[in-house]
Structures are given as structure tokens and as C-alpha cells.
Design a protein around this nucleic acid. Structure first.
Lengths: 340, 340
DNA sequence: TTGAAAGCGTTACCAA
DNA sequence: TTGGTAACGCTTTCAA
């Protein structure tokens, strides 16, 4: 029974020299054939022999050797942290990744939780990525950007709520989310509006701009905005609900649907009527938000399609001279259901 | 104002030769100093000069050159796909990553959506990872494993519901989840139990073993198990609920909390009383499941702590000769609230 | 205590 | 149409 791999034991890893030997040609010829080099003409017979030898040996080229020789890589590095990324975000990242792979880049996520702002860019730079796309949850300092650029990164790009000086930026402007929600509530005649601020660390990066957007929208109408710290726990919500009537609010924008559901339940449990006494608005348009009664009104976000952005990254890599570009990715729109 | 980086323009990337020149020593000495080589004694003065030169130039070693010379890498590669990973999973992966980094491995996630079972391992192998940890959602074939091993991977490890022949396995046995839920329902006197099977592709990998576990648990008591296809949409749930009474079920295990919430709402909307007419059990112990009324009973899962697993991976890498090991990571326990 | 040199796997130029 | 060879950046053995 030779169905199982013949040699699961440790052998030396086959190199292009092994392929050359087996095919009876030189290493150069192997390289030409396997890379479909256009500058050289190789006979069909030789090509065949080389390819055959390569598959027989299970030859896989060594990326490190290749990029050492080439003087550059085609690696795009995405630092990641452990944060509850919403499905929209996650899907977007995977789309972007696919788009870049289509352009022949090798996309690699590099977990950077617990690395400080100095060490992290150093660690990334060791891999000599041609581009780095850093989510907003990663603190990218001017020094960090400098380290990356000097290590050969052609494009350093941030992806998040706000741009960072010295880097290109794919901006997901969270202020839109806040202003969208507040505009809707103002339209509905609400004038004293709470804005939930999650106490979970890391979420402030999103919450602060949403609050800022809310304030901007409220300013014109002289409406009142009240930040409301809240942890994602039932007790925290219950405490907030208990002092609700003393706050004198007629509406609340609850950061997102999950926090909104938590708070709405707590409010209802203390006898606050939604939306009569207090209107509630979330964000993310989760399916689950439609299951509560009243159905949750929400801000739906849409992100730009990823392929054009992959093309953009490609362009930034190729013309790395240009000054930092900012691109807005996020579009927010109200989905009003029953809670507002 | 020279606060901004002096040379944002393209310069050649500094190498250890540049550092050597600047410090007035040889490349060898630079290597000794920067790697704290124990085999050689270098004067403190020289060390200082070298380090200074390195930081002044912003020197970062070239990982590819290093590993080419060393003949091996310390890269652990984690293929990923675009699937709604639950927070538990995500957190576990990040913990594992941190644990491996502590052991001086470079952990890298490689998005592999859309790559077929042959191409993907090839692409991974080009990076010469010393270990590959493939989530169950990645189809790892014996050929794929073979390609990886022959490219120098010391450990090929699967991470998911079931082991794969020829590879080590970190098993998250989903059958436990199903059997745990059903055991609970049997205890409550239920005998005709539906099991929700998500129709979303990719989830079958988890749903099937859960169903199998449910069947095993039901078998001893002669209880009836009825698979119930369901899409994660309100209409799909409404259709299922509409024909509920014809199914003759007195309980349902709804795959997870999200599906459970969806279905429970649909049942309630058609007048089915929970838990009187039908008991409902989810899984994942989401906070949101506690917000519905009745509060959702659920299967809570716990995963093994990650640091010991990182140590395990390290061991497998170092003693790559051993035969495939299987380790069980998942522990399931019932949290009974009001819906069952 | 330091330096010279070889070699890891690839590719590209130049000869044959 | 093919092969020899140098070079990419780094570590390490050997020699000084």
C-alpha cells in the first residue's frame, strides 16, 4: 500500500539545483522555465523535463531567497490586534486581501497585541514588507512610520477612524455615524440625547469620533448631548437605567446595536417606555436588533468596495513619492424601525 | 523645524555592512554585538559604537537573509478564511499567537480564501514556515501536508472539529456541544428534539458534529432527533416556525445563540410558548441571549489555555519525528436559564 | 578581540 | 537555446 506519502521522514528540502540535476540542465534554465521568463527561448522538450523534475521532487521555491535576490518583496503586512471586529470590518479586510492577492501580493496578518509602538514596527520591518496597512487600533507613530519606510516599505497606510501624520490613510470616518443618528433623532423632535460611551478599552477610538459627530449635528439645533459611560454588562446597564429619569433624556444613541439592545432591555425593565419616553438608536444593523420589541432603529454602515482599494494600494506602492493621500471609505445611513 | 523625519525620501535600506562601516568594525563584529553572541568576547567600547551606529542608521536586520543563512525560519503560519469566527475562537487564536511569540516565534496569518487545496499549501510552503496551524475551515489534504513537510515544516497541526490524517490535531470536539444540550433537554423530560442546521456554507463543519453528538446522546434514551435546516434570516425562521406544530417537537437545540434567538422570536410570533410548548437551547453564552424573554439557555464552551498549547507546538517542532498527536481543547457545559 | 571568507537559494547578465 | 557566475544580506568558522 503506497497510498501514503513515501517519505514522511526528514529529507533535505529540494532546491532548484536538485531540480536542475534531475532534469540534466543548469539552475539558470530551471529558473527560466519555472518563471516563464519571456526574455529567453527554451525548447519545449527542456521545459517539460524541468517541470516534471520539479513536481517529482515536490519543489517549492524559497521566497526568502527570491526576495533577497530581487531586492524587494511583494508582501503586504496587516498588523492585527485582539478586538471584537464587527463582521463588516472582517469581511472588508478579507476582500481587500483577496484583491491584493489578485494583484500578486502576498498578504500577511501579523498579530501585534502586546507589542509596544516602538517594537512592533521593527518586527514588521524585519520582513521587509512592500506595504503596511495598519488598522486604527494599532498606534502608529511617526517614528514607526520612519522605521518602516527606511526598511523599504513603499507605502505605509492607516485604516481607521482618523489619519496619522506622514502616512496614507483609508479613513472610516466614525463621526458620520454619530451625526447620522443624531440628525435622525432631531428630526423626530428629540432634543436631549444621550450618547453611550463603551468603557471597554480600545473602543474609545471609535466611540470618541462618534460622539464628536453627534455633537456637531446637535450644535446647529441647540440640542443637548450627554455622554453616558457604559460597560458591556447587565449590571452596568441596570445602574444606568436606574438613574435614567434623573438624566432628563428623551433619546439615546447607544454606540452600536449590541449596546443598544443591552440598554433598551435595562430601560424597559425599569419601566421606561421605548420609544415614547426615550428613543433608542444603535448602529451596525445586526439581525438580532430586529428581534427585540420595539425593533431597533440603527445606523447602517457601508464600506467602499475592496478591489478599487487594492488597486489604490498597488498605485501607492508603485509611486511611493507622492504625498499622503486620504480616502473616505465609510458611508452611513439611517435605518429607522420602531425604537425611535 | 527638524521634528519631522529628516529623510522621508527613498534611500537605500541600511545593511549590517553600513553599520560596520559607520562603527569602523567588520560585519562579523556587528553581527556578534547585535545578536549578543555568547561565543565571542567583544569590548564594551566596541559594543557601544556598534549599537549607536545601528540606531543612528535605523538598521533593522533582514529576516529573509537571516533565515536563508540559518537554513530555517521561526515562522508559524496560520491560514485563515473569511468566516464569522466567534469571540471565543478569536481570542483563543490571539492568545496562542502571544504564547508563541513569547517563545520567539514569528506568527503570521495567511488569508487563504479562494485558494484551492493544492495551491494554498504551496503558497504557504514558499515562506518555509517551521510550523503550520490550519483551522478546520481550511481543507488540508494528505498531499498538502506532504508539500509542507517536504518544504521543511517541522509540525503540521490542524485546529478544529476533527483531526486530519497525517497531521497533529488540536481538536475542538463539537459533538460535546450537541450532546451536552441534548442531555440537558432529556433531563427536562423532552423527547422529540429538533436540531438546527445552518444552511450557510462553511458552518456545516461545526453543525454536523454537533448533530452527531446530539444523536449519540439521544440514542440511549430512545429520543427522537430531527435536523432542521435554517438560514440566518427572518423569513427562513418564519417559514420554519409556520410549520412548527406539524413537526411535533417539544424542544430544539438551535446550533448557537444567534440562531436560537432568531428561531425563538419566530416561534413566539406564531404563538408557540417557550419553554412550555417548546424548549429552546443555544450555544456560546452570548450576553445578548440574556436579554430576550425567556432568557436563553445555552451551552457555554471553554477552550484550553493557550500558553500550554504554545509550549506544545514548540515541542512538536523540536521533536518532529513523533507520530500525530491529538489534544482535546474544548469543554462544554450547560447554562440553564429560562428557555428550557 | 577582531577580520576575512564561505555559503544559504535565487535570478539575471553575459558568453558560448 | 543553454550554462557559468555574481550578487542579494546575513551568520559563523577559522585564522590572525
Amino acid at each position: 500500500m503506497s497510498q501514503l506519502p513515501k517519505q514522511p521522514t526528514e529529507g533535505p528540502v529540494p532546491t532548484s539545483a536538485d531540480v536542475a540535476r534531475r532534469a540534466g540542465v543548469s539552475r539558470a534554465t530551471v529558473s527560466y522555465v519555472l518563471n516563464d521568463s519571456a526574455t529567453v527561448r527554451i525548447s519545449e522538450a527542456t521545459r517539460h523535463r524541468v517541470r516534471e523534475a520539479a513536481t517529482e521532487l515536490g519543489y517549492v521555491p524559497h521566497a526568502a531567497a527570491r526576495s533577497l535576490r530581487a531586492g524587494h518583496t511583494r508582501m503586504v503586512l496587516l498588523p492585527t490586534v485582539d478586538l471584537p471586529a464587527d463582521p463588516l470590518h472582517r469581511h472588508f479586510l478579507h476582500q481587500l486581501e483577496s484583491g491584493l492577492r489578485r494583484l500578486d501580493y502576498t498578504v500577511v496578518q501579523y498579530g501585534s497585541t502586546g507589542l509596544n509602538a516602538d517594537d512592533a514596527p521593527r518586527a514588521w520591518a524585519e520582513l521587509r514588507p512592500v506595504a503596511v496597512i495598519a488598522p486604527g487600533t494599532i498606534s502608529l507613530t511617526p517614528q514607526g512610520i520612519s522605521v518602516l519606510r527606511r526598511s523599504g516599505a513603499k507605502a505605509v497606510i492607516t485604516l481607521g477612524p482618523r489619519p496619522v501624520a506622514g502616512a496614507h490613510a483609508l479613513v472610516m470616518d466614525q463621526r458620520q455615524v454619530g451625526s447620522c443618528a443624531i440628525a435622525h433623532l432631531l428630526e423626530r423632535g428629540r432634543r436631549s440625547i444621550g450618547v453611550v460611551m463603551p468603557e471597554e478599552s480600545g473602543l474609545g477610538l471609535f466611540a470618541e469620533p462618534r460622539l464628536a459627530g453627534a455633537r456637531e449635528a446637535a450644535l446647529e439645533h441647540g440640542a443637548r448631548i450627554e455622554p453616558l459611560p457604559l460597560r458591556y454588562e447587565e449590571e452596568s446597564a441596570a445602574r444606568l437605567a436606574a438613574r435614567w429619569r434623573t438624566l432628563g433624556l428623551d433619546a439615546v444613541f447607544a454606540y452600536n446595536d449590541a449596546y443598544a439592545m443591552l440598554l433598551m432591555r435595562a430601560l424597559q425593565d425599569t419601566g421606561v417606555q421605548v420609544p415614547r419616553d426615550t428613543a433608542v438608536v444603535g448602529a451596525d444593523d445586526l439581525l438580532l436588533g430586529r428581534l427585540l420589541r420595539p425593533r431597533l432603529s440603527t445606523v447602517r454602515m457601508e464600506l467602499a468596495t475592496a478591489q478599487p482599494l487594492a488597486d489604490l494600494v498597488d498605485r501607492l506602492v508603485q509611486h511611493s513619492a507622492g504625498s499622503p493621500e486620504h480616502h473616505d471609505l465609510l458611508r452611513a445611513g439611517m435605518v429607522d424601525r420602531e425604537s425611535s
